[in-house]
Amino acid sequence: MSALLDVKNVRVKYGNIEALKGISFTVQSGEIISLIGANGAGKSTTLRTISGLLTPVSGEVVWQGKPIHHMKPHDIVKLGLLQSPEGRGIFANLSVLENLEMGAYTRKDSKEAITKDLENVYLLFPRIKERLRQQAGTLSGGEQQMLAISRALMGRPKLLLLDEPSLGLAPQIVETIFSIIKKINSEGTTILLVEQNAFQALKISHRGYVVETGEIVLSGKGSDLLVDPKVREAYLGG
């Protein structure tokens, strides 16, 4: 079976600095895949490249058999790849509802379908519903993360790209967010997750890749990586 997303030997540079030194991995339909690694390893750069914010100097990003690495970000969104970016990417000057509407920006289907998806989002995150009219910048960190994920869901993603959803959140909220990510996946959305919180990420992932200084150094099933001695030592505190 051909992969939903196939990242082939991608190299990305910021000026003279090589941030990705030939990264390859695949995402199959229905999976949760996590990229784990330390700060600065190149995880966010990978997501930014997949979404078209960065262009690789060599290598390919292939989506359902078609190369997309020269496409503009807004066209990639139309293919069904939606990202909740690093730092959540909330439009603080827009209301919560307007943020959700931006997630559905490219959709051409009926208003009813969008309203129905809004209802689904409220089911996942009841707190979002209470804050619809509020400026998004006034939300707490956890609520902003919920909004960022909800907003990406409003675009009906085939692949949901999540960049550090646990960053800066209290432990209980991290638990909630991860259980919801799992739920979203069980309802049929494929997920590519980037995390420093290796334990939480691997626990819900089908497969994982360990990224170090722009390269993939290890890969395997989520459950295998969780017990891998090298992973335990480097990312799970021994």
Binding site: S51, L53, H74, V77, P85, G89, F91, A92, L94, T106
Partner: peptide
């Protein structure tokens, strides 16, 4: 507010 983030919405 943020151009790159807007482009991630498909704008």
């Amino acid at each position: 507010f943020n151009g790159p983030w807007a482009s991630l919405m498909g704008i």
